[in-house]
Design a protein around this nucleic acid. Sequence first.
DNA 1: GGCATGCTTCGGCCCAGACCGAAGCATGCT
DNA 2: AGCATGCTTCGGTCTGGGCCGAAGCATGCC
Lengths: 229, 229
Amino acid sequence: MSTNAAMAETAALVGDPARAAMLNALMDGRALTAGELAGVAGITAQTASGHLARLAAAGLLAMERQGRHRYHRLATPAVARMLEAIMTVAGSAPPPARPRRIGPADAAMRNARTCYDHLAGRLGVAIADAMAARGQVELATDGGAVTAAGEAFLQSLGISPQAGTRRAFCKPCLDWSERRHHLAGGLGAALCTRCFELGWVKRVPASRTVLVTRAGEAGLRQAFGIELA
Amino acid sequence: MSTNAAMAETAALVGDPARAAMLNALMDGRALTAGELAGVAGITAQTASGHLARLAAAGLLAMERQGRHRYHRLATPAVARMLEAIMTVAGSAPPPARPRRIGPADAAMRNARTCYDHLAGRLGVAIADAMAARGQVELATDGGAVTAAGEAFLQSLGISPQAGTRRAFCKPCLDWSERRHHLAGGLGAALCTRCFELGWVKRVPASRTVLVTRAGEAGLRQAFGIELA
DNA sequence: GGCATGCTTCGGCCCAGACCGAAGCATGCT
DNA sequence: AGCATGCTTCGGTCTGGGCCGAAGCATGCC
């Protein structure tokens, strides 16, 4: 295909108000369901479905199934950069105002909770982000891997890498409230266990919610550079 | 207007094959006439006219009249960046292959010639680019200005800034063959005169064409950092 | 002035595609 | 199993806008 035609096709996908609204809603890296995206675009589910299929076919969006939901997010950072460039030309400053948060009502639960055997919520996502940013883990949709630097870091935390295969050991899991990935698999479980052992977090009785202790705030800041304001 | 709507509108403008082809043809910063743009897009002049009007109204294109021609170019570097970002996502590498050159048939004349009292062609554009890149002049569509650094540089070349108003002194002029701006006005005339005085260029008899001498190649490289391969 | 050229405006044709209602799968909950 | 929920596919309507022919201005050349 001609480069002109390819460019026009991609731009035309962004050039529809409904699709633009959906893409805009995904600009912060979160993943949203088809129904939610239909809502922000002000169209019915079936229309949104068609749009999302086209965006995915063109490689602008990536889709991930989780139960009976389908989570959509921008396929690559290049897509986000493209959208920013278009908004720049369009003249409107990109308003960083996040849309209203959808998810668990309980604020504490949004902040930190367990997901099966690992940590989720803002805390879980922050840990995943920090480790990815530091090159300690490499995350992909289908799996992840712990790097050499990551193994050394885990040792320093008191976690020994007894895991067999490194890939299964580090599995990304889509976060319910944050709509971003956190660490699951053997790695996620080990990190979670260690955080409890160190007294950085403690459970709220009869709930999945966990609270970050004072010692935890300091320890997390020290170990991961995380600031959970 | 909502930021979504503005983004969609801008993207939709790029999302038409004919408009995309025209924008693509302008990616290297040259300015083309409406007729030429119609040609590259494979549409008639009247259709192209409509497209160009819309692109200009949206601020993607800038128009400049020169005689009975209307030259169009990308309005800002931000537009070029946007187009590159879209092409990146579209997957095709932006091919830097320039379209076939339109303009003066005579190669020597394309290379360097006089335009009234100043230098044009590749040489003229190269000088303008070099001085702009070094912050010696600041160019705008309607006029330009010599900076303090520029005045010092001109002094070192043996040109005294006797001009009255600095703005009229430095006027950008759209180059015929290069389709980019070169320096006109008092500054352009002074530079041209000085180049002749220094023996850097000499006229081809009965022609607007000028030739760069061996001394000129060295002098231009030294003074402007220009390499006219 | 008269003619050629470059560009724009006007009017009308026509098609891609955005939209929704209804129906069809798939998954999870009880 | 039965029902609810989330999403997709199918079919049909309708409008926005891309396109050209013809005509109208503006500019430059002889």
